[in-house]
Nucleic acid binder design. Structure first.
Length: 263
DNA sequence: ACGCAACCCTGGGGGC
DNA sequence: TGCCCCCAGGGTTGCG
């Protein structure tokens, strides 16, 4: 799930449910997801604090506390957050559980445990240390063109590289390439300036629209690749069977008829 | 600099 | 029912 639109949706959900309440308890059910902090320290530092605001960069979510440090969340492949009225309602794969003073609670759940929970003092410093690229919705056309001018490789690999542009994952990379009719394996050295501009516009357009849909596939246009992506799926443009290939270590789905390598 | 495989972890689905 | 393999929207590391 968790690419930029999903994480933005989590952010809005967290803002709508979990701010300005005193944290009464922190229950770490799987210390595996903790990075750079022990269960004990997470508990000690967050207890009696409040979440005050949040910030997203790429696929990372940062929650500022009234102690002027930040909770850092990354959702891996299967992470999400859920707010509940009673602790017994915690989902099965809850890894970290925040209980507020009114007994309502926020669960960080993550079946596959590829997600990360940590504490940091400074968001910008963290982004720098991780060498993350600009957020996919903040990057300018100029920056985008520069990235494409300075690197080599398959276009999908570039879109997926968080150190170049942060926030695009496997699903939305496929969607952007489908929209622009570019084959995912196209070497970026062979892309025209016009096509790079198209990729930039498609990125913005798709991510924004996906956020409007709360990153819910059921609410996305049927003309998109997303609802048809997968085995047996057909191109919503021409009706031909979609094809898959491994590019950049992940499965790319595309329409071999409409998505070409010459641009 | 880039591509690739292996690895991290858990569970669902298909084939036998 | 059990088992084995493949697959899954994240990322890192080490090698050629």
């Amino acid at each position: 799930m968790p690419e930029l639109p999903d994480v933005e949706t989590f952010k809005r959900y967290l803002n709508a449910t979990s701010l300005h309440q005193r944290i009464a308890n922190v229950d770490v059910r799987s210390a595996y997801v903790l990075k750079g902090v022990s269960a004990r320290e997470l508990e000690r530092r967050l207890k009696r604090r409040r979440f005050e605001s949040s910030r997203r960069h790429g696929k990372h979510l940062f929650v500022r506390t009234d102690g002027d440090f930040w909770l850092r969340l990354h959702f891996g492949m299967t992470g999400s957050i859920h707010y509940f009225k009673r602790p017994e309602q915690a989902p099965k794969h809850t890894r970290v559980f925040f209980v507020f003073a009114n007994t309502h609670c926020l669960a960080f759940e993550d079946q596959r445990k590829f997600g990360e929970v940590g504490l940091i003092e400074d968001v910008n410093e963290f982004l720098k240390k991780r060498a993350l690229g600009p957020d996919a919705l903040d990057v300018s056309l100029g920056q985008f063109r520069e990235i494409f001018a300075k690197h080599r490789g398959a276009v999908k690999t570039i879109l997926l590289n968080q150190n170049l542009v942060a926030g695009i994952g496997n699903i939305y990379a496929d969607e952007i390439l489908f929209r622009t009719r570019v084959h995912p394996a196209t070497q970026i050295s062979s892309l025209s300036g016009k096509t790079v501009t198209k990729l930039f516009r498609a990125t913005r357009c798709i991510l924004k629209r996906a956020i409007e849909a709360n990153a819910d596939v059921a609410l996305m246009p049927k003309s998109w690749l997303l609802p048809h992506r997968g085995k047996g799926g057909k191109c919503p443009g021409c009706g031909r069977k979609l094809r898959s290939a491994t590019i950049g270590g992940r499965t790319a789905w595309f329409c071999a008829h409409r998505q070409r390598k010459s641009h």
